[in-house]
């Protein structure tokens, strides 16, 4: 293992210290509670948004704390959800008197720890609502299972619901648009390699040069299936077929198309993949009008990518375009 690390057991804390040092006008690291919060308090009365999850998926969620997105993020250990204490502290930090939305990815550990935190917070009189992100089409949506994972839709929900909160929407409205975005988003991921968690020191599994994992998540676990490597056109076609079969967009629909890198794939390759996807979607009579290409929801040093598609409506588009100032997503002029 060759990595930039001090003690692997302190990998998460060390990265949080560095993040706050690099972006002092955007975020602060609250070391006592192990959460990342905004450097400046938002205006009083804004609905708060928090999220949390295993570390190793950066910039999710810590990189999305700031104006127009999250108020606080709770990073767990690598690929391990945060603990209730962190979630309680982040909720308190985010509450400006108008309630807090919990953005929860549908992973068992995350759901359980947010559930325990919500039970504890019930004693404090903070209004809390939640959105459960479950956009992963690689998993059959069946009763009696853990259900679908929350993947790329998380970024879109945090951006769009964050903008709704920033413009002054109340908790019910912010929750509503968050759920609408999740309901109209689907994701499918492909892994070209495994990844190496710092404490493990070696890859989670071996993947031969001529094979890929399809239907991957964001915690380094194997995918739904291992198949032979194929060219980028075929990979794009598989991703699009999986996503569209489940999303069933209206013909001619305006789409937000995200090609997300898993951490170790060069941006140039992501653009190759985006180009293939864009062309194929247009040929299918759809209309990609917004895009996001880069490493936004990663699995440490895994190579690979995920395609996320959101069928936009006018309100979502306005909120997507609204100004945002985080360490990883920044655009538009702040008022």
């Amino acid at each position: 293992m060759k990595k930039f690390l001090n003690d692997p057991a302190h990998a998460v804390t060390d990265y949080l210290v560095g993040l706050a040092a690099a972006h002092p006008t955007i975020v602060k690291f609250d070391a006592a509670h192990r959460i990342i919060v905004r450097a400046a308090d938002p205006r009083t009365g804004k609905v708060g948004l928090i999220a949390g999850g295993g570390s190793g998926c950066e910039p999710l969620h810590t990189g999305f704390v700031g104006h127009g997105m999250l108020d606080a993020a709770c990073p767990g250990e690598i690929f391990t959800s945060p603990v209730p204490k962190q979630i309680v502290a982040a909720t308190r930090a985010a509450d400006q008197g108008s309630g807090v939305l919990h953005v929860i990815k549908n992973f068992s550990g995350e759901v359980m720890n947010f559930g325990m935190a919500t039970e504890l917070l019930a004693f404090e009189g903070i209004a809390i609502d939640s959105v459960l992100i479950d956009d992963d089409v690689s998993i059959p949506d069946m009763p009696g299972t853990a259900g679908r994972r929350g993947l790329g839709a998380t970024v879109l929900v945090e951006k769009i619901a964050g903008a709704a909160a920033e413009r002054g929407d109340d908790l019910a409205s912010v929750t509503c648009i968050a759920r609408r975005v999740n309901a109209r988003t689907r994701t499918f991921g492909v892994g070209l390699s495994s990844c190496t968690p710092p404490l493990r020191g070696k890859p989670i599994y071996d993947l031969p040069d001529d094979e890929i994992e399809i239907g991957i998540g964001i915690s380094g676990e194997p995918g739904r299936e291992r198949v032979a490597m194929r060219n980028v056109q075929e990979i794009a076609r598989t991703m699009i077929a999986e996503v569209l079969a489940d999303l069933r967009p209206t013909p001619g629909a305006a789409l937000l198309v995200m090609v997300n890198g898993m951490g170790a794939t060069p941006l140039s390759e992501l653009y190759v993949l985006y180009g293939e996807c864009d062309q194929a979607l247009r040929s299918a009579g759809l209309n990609p009008v917004r895009s996001l290409v880069g490493n936004y929801v990663t699995s440490l040093d895994q190579a690979g990518a995920a395609l996320t598609i959101l069928e936009l409506d006018d309100e979502m588009t306005v909120l997507w375009d609204a100004p945002v100032r985080t360490s990883s997503i920044t655009w538009g002029a702040l008022a």
């Binding site: 295993g54 250990e77 603990v83 204490k85 720890n113 325990m116």
Partner: peptide, 10 residues
Amino acid sequence: VDIVGGSSGA
């Protein structure tokens, strides 16, 4: 609960 996190902790 406070230390482990994940589903194991819960």
